[in-house]
Computed example of a mutant assay.
Amino acid sequence: MTTPSGPTVPFALARFATDAGSVPGLVVGDRIRPLSPAELGAPSLNEFLAAGEAAWDRIAALAAVASDASHSDGTTADAAWRPLEAVTLLAPVEPRQVLQTGANYRTHVIDLVAAGRAKDDPRPIEELREWAAELMDRRAREGIPYFFIGLPACVVGAEEVLELPDYSEQHDWELELAVVIGSPAFRVSREDAMAHVAGYTIVNDITTRDLVFRQDMKDIGTDWYRAKNAPGFLPTGPFLVPARHIADPGDLRLTLTLNGETMQDATTGDLLFDIPALIAAASETMPLLPGDLLLTGSPAGNGIAHGRLLRDGDVMVGTIEGLGSQVVRAAAARVPA
């Protein structure tokens, strides 16, 4: 069975299930231990994230103690530590808002334009791709990010089985780097934006392709509610990696494999709008709150471009440099639509 790999950083946060409910946990290597409110210094994870660097310093000290107390066999004297494989990991965040960024990877958008070419379009495919590339370059220079809203109820742990609704056979993957907000951000500048980032996590933004555009009234445009908000359509985590451990979020490698075959392989260097630009633009309209997720977009290599969409039994492994990996297993829906 494929299992998630831990983050390659000194420590991270996670949430896991216990008989008493979900609890936050400190992750060091391939081990995890629960964190009490006293250790967090806050009654909830979101309040911890709002506290900024001082809160992370406290967790760093706990992680250092764990490393210092490690035995040669990888165990520690602290019995609270458990192997990651011994717990059920949940989504590492509890967002009140989920903002999703559309059309934010240059190559991805070019691929989508090519895949969606109208049957009566006389242009050769390379000419169409060149046109889309010029459009994206102009948008990066002169345009603004494109946001839409996801439902927090769709945020689940990656260990939860992804059920594929039977009203479509066009469910697709979209691996994304997600920004986790720390202190509230409202109308912040690009220069100040990164001070509001608590950390990063992995999200697979599942999309039902044939529901993206309305067929009954095409002038309405996109229907992101129906295309992206089925139960479990935002597998998240399993780890929340503090921003201090990611030197350059604008240069991270993302890969997604489907049943062992690489489908997405890109870096965040292909983003049209970088993270400071996204935070500044998103916070202009509505305050971003501690624990909120801001998805940065998905790179090229989605199923629609490969001509291979999700099926019962598929296993996706999404990996982002420094953040570890998530394993998502797809299955046919148990409850018919």
Rank of each mutant, 00 (worst) to 15 (best):
Gly6Val: 01
Pro7Phe: 02
Val9Ala: 06
Ala12Asp: 04
Phe16Tyr: 13
Gly25Asn: 05
Pro34Cys: 08
Pro34Val: 03
Pro34Trp: 03
Leu35Cys: 13
Ser36Pro: 10
Gly41Thr: 07
Ala42Leu: 12
Phe48Glu: 08
Ala51His: 07
Gly52Asp: 08
Ala54Trp: 00
Ala54Asn: 05
Trp56Val: 08
Ile59Glu: 10
Ala60Cys: 09
Ala61Cys: 12
Ala64Arg: 14
Ala66Arg: 09
Ser67Asp: 14
Ser70Glu: 15
Ser70Asn: 00
Ser72Pro: 01
Ser72Arg: 12
Asp73Pro: 08
Ala79Trp: 09
Trp81Lys: 03
Pro83Val: 00
Leu84Trp: 01
Glu85Gly: 12
Val87Gly: 08
Leu89Glu: 07
Leu90Met: 14
Ala91Gly: 06
Pro92Met: 11
Arg96Met: 12
Gln97Thr: 12
Val98Ala: 08
Leu99Val: 11
Gln100Met: 14
Gly102Trp: 02
Arg106Thr: 13
Thr107Pro: 00
Ile110Phe: 07
Asp111Val: 06
Val113Arg: 14
Ala114Phe: 04
Gly116Arg: 14
Arg117Cys: 10
Asp120Gly: 00
Pro124Met: 03
Ile125Ala: 15
Glu126Lys: 11
Glu127Lys: 10
Arg141Asp: 13
Phe147Asp: 01
Val156Pro: 02
Asp166His: 06
Gln170Asn: 09
Gln170Thr: 15
His171Thr: 15
Glu174Gly: 02
Glu176Cys: 05
Leu177Tyr: 02
Ala185Ile: 06
Ala193His: 05
Ala193Tyr: 02
Thr208Ser: 15
Arg209Ile: 13
Arg209Gly: 11
Asp210Lys: 08
Val212Ser: 12
Phe213Ala: 14
Gln215Lys: 15
Asp216Leu: 10
Asp216Gln: 13
Met217His: 15
Met217Lys: 14
Trp224Pro: 01
Tyr225Thr: 14
Tyr225Cys: 10
Asn229Tyr: 07
Gly232Asp: 04
Pro235Gly: 03
Leu240Val: 10
Ile246Asp: 01
Leu252Phe: 08
Leu252Tyr: 09
Arg253Asn: 11
Leu254Asp: 10
Asp265His: 09
Gly269Thr: 03
Phe273Thr: 00
Ile275Lys: 03
Pro287Tyr: 04
Gly291Cys: 09
Asp292Arg: 02
Ser298Ile: 03
Pro299His: 07
Ala300Asp: 13
Gly301Cys: 08
Gly303Pro: 09
Ile304Trp: 13
Arg311Gly: 12
Met316Tyr: 01
Gln326Leu: 05
Ala331Trp: 02
Ala333Lys: 07
Ala333Ser: 15
Val335Lys: 14
